[in-house]
Amino acid sequence: MKTELTTQNKIFNEVKKFSSQHTYVFSFFALLLIAVLINKNFLSYSYLSTLILQSTIKGIIALGMTLVIISGQIDLSVGSLTALVSGLGVVVLNTTENMLVMLLFCMVFGLFLGTINGLLVTKGRIAPFIVTLATLSAFRSIIVQLGQGGPFNVSENVYQSFRLIAVGTIFKIPNLAIIFVIVTAIVYIVMEKTKFGRYIYAVGSNEKAASLAGINVVRIKTLCFSITGLLTGISAFLLASRLTSITAPNAGVSFELDAIAAVAIGGTSMNGGRGRIIGTFLGIIMLQMIEGILIAAKIPPFLTGLVKGVIIILAVLLQSRKEKS
């Protein structure tokens, strides 16, 4: 009798522990319910695949943002970085007519720009908020100047094949959705199964202790920005494929907002040290769902920003209350 009770208790405790660490799962299902109630077609295959497809580009950036935030930092420059890499990526594509070269360029250039952010923060000892606010402005300015305000258009020769990356499907599953899942899986494995991931959590939780345990804090913090740059580079590549035309002043605007919102909704602590990649994955999809719900509920599109703002505040409020208890 007694042992039964303890096993029951154990299960109860496990459920309690899981629910306290993974609140985003519950929010996800709650949102799903609302979405289905408002829009009967919500669970249809086409709707769901569109949802993931729309989440991919911002979602991949949000994965990087998760690393940055878990390590106790922030990156506001991702939107401008997307535009810069994407615009120049199109130029590379048009000159080489090779998509692989373009992808490689986007990844390396993104990595490079992210590393600049990281080094300014760690070696330059400037607050991440300030550094990335400055590069947000700088990256955008460079690409607008290079494009002279106009768009970067993918040339006729590669247009069809390049477009296919973003709009194509494999076994009726959108390519973008597949790419998102694969990238998420890789980042998940890095965070959960390698010591590098463990170090990121450690640095975000207690930098001093991490350093005194022999972790190279400067390197870890810099690499978080580098990886975000790399992932943003991949997103920039996909964005170019999806739009086939990058308008320098508009591309990627407010991506940082959506990425940070997704991380917050996904249950990652804004103080660093705690957070889950799966949370961010669901977080960005939730954000997309909310947009869908707003449209279905015929709420004026101008108000999406307001709703997103409220959601970020609510998510962080819930998070900080949880941390206190």
């Binding site: 010591k195 463990r198 170090y199 450690a202 939780s205 001093k208 202790a209 991490a210 040290g273």
Partner: peptide, 19 residues
Amino acid sequence: ERSIIKDFSIRDNLSIGHF
């Protein structure tokens, strides 16, 4: 201040030096 990684489990706190 200097040793405990407060967001880590007991086991993970122990592992860090080994890693």
